[in-house]
Design a binder for these strands. Structure first.
Lengths: 344, 344
DNA sequence: TTGAAAGCGCTAACAC
DNA sequence: GTGTTAGCGCTTTCAA
């Protein structure tokens, strides 16, 4: 539901202006605006009216300056990263539900992670949520000693850093199990190099093959997180003899590149080769892509991340540092039985 | 070049702390930290050292509260929009070069534009840059009466709203001219409905066809800004008899969907059909996409937008309200001569 | 329930 | 060149 555009006051309207108009003191207006106890119903109503008439908007800077709490959570995200978009979308409502605000800091080609973090520190956020950061663990640890830090969608082993992530190893096992169930015996993996989650997913791939007694058929190709990485890997894949009948790919973006190159080379998907992605980002759901993928539940991940941040901020209770959510296989149209085999 | 991770202070360090350690007064430290004139070289050095030792970071909230200027530019962008990512990437360095900071406010499926703007107003930005907003012109005008508002990549006719955009009509003319030059006579257009720039691009398409005496061959299909919109339009396109030999598409994202569906239907691009996009976003540049497209110069657009904002803020000089940048054709691999014709 | 006074961290205006 | 004083808009004592 689109919210009504708020009216814009002509000049900066302060609590003092509202107080004057309502004929009460400034602190009383503050009490009413914050919605806390301590004002009579009549005054409450009068103040509300005065504020509305004047188009008063609280000045969050001043508010944060005075109360040591800022109720501000800093978020570092990659501006080019489709899945990060899904995560940011989930963080807003999760934070709002607990009375916190978000301040975004983008990582771009010319703005690296330390810069993005520095901007946030200057804004005096109380905690940080980092989406798949590449920062060294030592630095994350240093940050986390000073303020709550939650890393989303990456593994970090440090005693002060909270982690919320999907069980990526299990995710890849699900993908492989699905393909094996369809009858595939020769399954390649295009990995994500050093990117967040890549090592876990590789591990899941190998473990699943081993569980099916197919370790000898393992084929690891080096990929990455972008479409271009997938395209390059697909070209290598096409030269493999014998060609695998299926390939699990590091993430959806990368899988998109793989699909494009395979199809341009005349390979039918899934008739000649099956492809799986990872994330279930917006990309995978597109009707013409219809990518079979492993779903990371963005809403659940973001809720968990915000819960953890707020838990640390509000109560000192400290539970497990790592929260691992289960992934789910989403079967769409890029996987099917291999050509020469009839599926069980 | 990655910047070194800054060290993190144990507790909030204030100017007073630095002043005490350096043995000078608080305002003098302020002078040094801001890098303005009025301190001796010796003290300057001493203060710098003290600040460094203590890990001092200025509190931007307090700074903004005191000086009425916040030097903060609010940016509203669509978190799912690839081209907006390119624009945000350009805005950061453009703003920094002029001594301003950016504060980002995302539009997501559950957070509409009025909300995004409201958040920014609360943060006391001095000006707003809106990326392809859908907000009604009247509301934009109301905003613009109170603070500088620059709309990027959309046409708005309002006497208070600044606009920086590409000449979209000329862009589409360039695409059509290119295709006609290759020998195409039957060129369709998949449009962007009511999205920013769509009307202009439609106009350019029709004008270019008319200039070549091909108005009768005009084929307008309804599309949109997403891959799915393109995919749907492509399915319609495939049923057209006779099939056009080329199609100009509203933007790169939409064109990606078009390409996928065409290829899945067995059409060779560009041998059987040529396709052009619009934006020259990251998508178009991918090696396996290699989309012929119309380049919107993100760096130039963002520089112009920030220049305009700052111009308005710093000097009262008010020039033309609309700044229109020239687009450029980028020929890649999705366009070529039509099958039955030899190009001139 | 309400108001007066103080101060969050910083910068602007002024004196020295 | 340097320190003093004052106050941005707000919230937090604390007294009435």
């Amino acid at each position: 539901m689109p919210s009504r555009p708020p009216s814009v006051p002509d000049r900066r309207v302060t609590l003092a202006d509202v107080a004057a108009r309502a004929g009460v003191s400034v602190p009383l207006v503050s009490i009413v605006m914050r919605g806390v106890a301590g004002a009579s119903p009549e005054n409450r109503e009068r103040v509300r009216r005065a504020a509305e008439d004047l188009g008063y908007r609280p000045d969050s800077r001043a508010r944060m300056l005075r109360s040591s709490r800022s109720h501000l959570i800093g978020v570092v995200f990659g501006v080019q990263h489709a899945f990060h978009g899904d995560l940011v979308s989930g963080l807003y409502p999760a934070a709002e539900a607990l009375g916190y605000e978000l301040t975004l800091s983008a990582v771009t080609p010319t703005r690296d992670e330390p810069r993005a973090v520095a901007g946030l520190l200057q804004d005096r956020c109380e905690a940080l949520i980092l989406l798949g950061p590449q920062l060294p663990t030592a630095y994350l640890g240093e940050l986390a000693r000073k303020m709550p830090v939650v890393v989303l969608a990456r593994t970090v082993r440090h005693r002060d850093v909270d982690v919320v992530r999907t069980d990526d190893s299990a995710g890849l096992r699900q993908a492989v199990d699905h393909l094996v169930g369809l009858g595939h015996r020769s399954i390649a993996h295009i990995d994500g190099g050093h990117n967040p989650g890549a090592a876990e997913r590789r591990r899941g791939y190998h473990a699943a093959l081993a569980a099916h007694g197919l370790s000898d058929a393992a084929r690891l190709l080096s990929g990455g997180l972008s479409e271009d990485d997938g395209a390059a890997a697909a070209r290598v894949l096409l030269d493999l003899r014998p060609m695998p009948t299926a390939v699990t790919v590091f993430n959806d973006r990368c899988a998109t590149g793989v699909l494009d190159v395979l199809r341009q080379a005349g390979m039918a998907v899934p008739a000649e080769i099956s492809v799986t992605g990872y994330d279930d980002s917006r990309l995978a759901r597109l009707s013409h892509v219809a990518l079979t993928t492993i779903r990371q539940d963005a809403a659940a991940l973001t809720r968990a991340a915000v819960d953890r941040v707020v838990g640390r901020l509000d109560h000192e209770t400290i539970g497990a540092r790592e929260q691992i959510l289960a992934p789910a296989l989403v079967v769409r149209q890029t996987t099917g039985p291999p050509r020469s085999t009839s599926a069980p």
